[in-house]
Design a protein around this nucleic acid. Sequence first.
DNA 1: AACGCCCATTGCAAATATTGCAACGCCGGA
DNA 2: TCCGGCGTTGCAATATTTGCAATGGGCGTT
Lengths: 267, 267
Amino acid sequence: MSQTVDRALTVLPLLAEGPATLDQVARRLGVHKSTALRLLRPLCDHGLVYRRPDQRYRLGARLFSLAQEAMESLDVREIAHPHLLRLNAETGHTVHLAVYEEDEVVYIDKVDSRYPVRMYSRIGRPVAITVAAVAKLLLADLPEDERRALAERLDYPKYTPHSTPDAPAFLAELARVREQGWATDLGGHEESINCVAAPVRGPDGRVAAAMSLSAPNVVVGADALVGLLPQVRRTAEAVSAEYCGRRTEPDRTAGPDEHSDEHEERP
Amino acid sequence: MSQTVDRALTVLPLLAEGPATLDQVARRLGVHKSTALRLLRPLCDHGLVYRRPDQRYRLGARLFSLAQEAMESLDVREIAHPHLLRLNAETGHTVHLAVYEEDEVVYIDKVDSRYPVRMYSRIGRPVAITVAAVAKLLLADLPEDERRALAERLDYPKYTPHSTPDAPAFLAELARVREQGWATDLGGHEESINCVAAPVRGPDGRVAAAMSLSAPNVVVGADALVGLLPQVRRTAEAVSAEYCGRRTEPDRTAGPDEHSDEHEERP
DNA sequence: AACGCCCATTGCAAATATTGCAACGCCGGA
DNA sequence: TCCGGCGTTGCAATATTTGCAATGGGCGTT
């Protein structure tokens, strides 16, 4: 609807691929060099894009802090965090919290395993949507048509022999997950790692987030991990209850108000 | 320079404070409701802003993944990471890597302490710029006028009695840090936590990043931590050397190329 | 259950901001 | 020193955005 803004925002994913010069940007945007320059300028001013000394553009650090602030203000995350810690303390395994949004499932919180073996995952990273246990829960709750459309739209990378192979298989799995109210990923992403996950539901009964427990085979076998499912479900239900209970949406009225500095941390 | 884009981008920090309705946004932007709507639309399309079921706007998940991609494509980070791991393995303490950009210092990598006591910090979060050891190193390297201007511009929160009290003290500290080539934060942010940091230098000799080792008093005293300084410096120098060595800027020419899917991870 | 209010949404016309072009100036290489 | 490339800016035409007012839908109230 707004051509200019749309073009400017197209720059971001473009630069996410790597640094680019002015007219690399211009060419990929299909606009004149000068236009690209004038598009880039406000992006730089706002810190979303950084202009390096060698005059190439890359994404700016403001993006990091913005994303961070956004994440920390997610109410599900805030409520769930202590519960994640507790689940981690009880089981010792890695705990994840993820949400679905616009074709993506991303981790919004994580508590690392006590064991030396740690998984490579990171808050903010998109999840392997076709195999991850949390993704299954999140997608299983979508309206049927949307779910089907999404399933068709996705790619199905063969991470391992146990990865979900295609859309029909995925939809079948989602149906099962939807019915049983929990999900697993048994070596679907990495051969030696298993996960079990449970949904967090919002006041409207829809799945607002999903939490999972993950552990490598060498630490605990798939059966044993699935044995922990009740604990995961209990935790998820506790979060749900709290999330549905107090709806503390602080109403911020208009006008430039001072945003209280949150407590920072150290280098 | 581009009013429309500028306005649209102003929305982001605004929403970072918390969710807002359409005309809260409009009012704070100083534009008509309909304008705000048309500004919000492309932001939503690109996933930077999410429109919740209750029709309030908040920052979107795309921001997370974008920031993540940006971070992972930072070459310093990539080069430094194995070294951070090694330093962590050797000392057992928390290791941070941070960069400076446009008045902000943000963590771009972190390896957690082996010890149960973990610090609250997070990749992407802005650093307490007036006290953090990494911040001191990064700022000490700025040109004098810029450094002074920035110092005047900053706030000096009294996190603890040891926090940097004001601009003159900060500038003095920066001068010292600049000379000695390393920095500390002894309880300046949290009474019981100390850090030592060393700079990573780019090909141009300027400080490109800073890495630090942090530990709470209960684990290791300030003296002992400072005793680890040589190791930190050695590590930072190793990173510098490598960073200056291979300048592998993959030249991406124009044209819509497929971006190879990186390996994802699990829920 | 019906009403009324609030809020998001859209058509339209005026006006303003954006676009592409071409010329300029700068830096680095030959 | 000269040449070439690249980023940058002035300008005029144009397309786009803007504000207004009217519409429609959802929700709480009476």
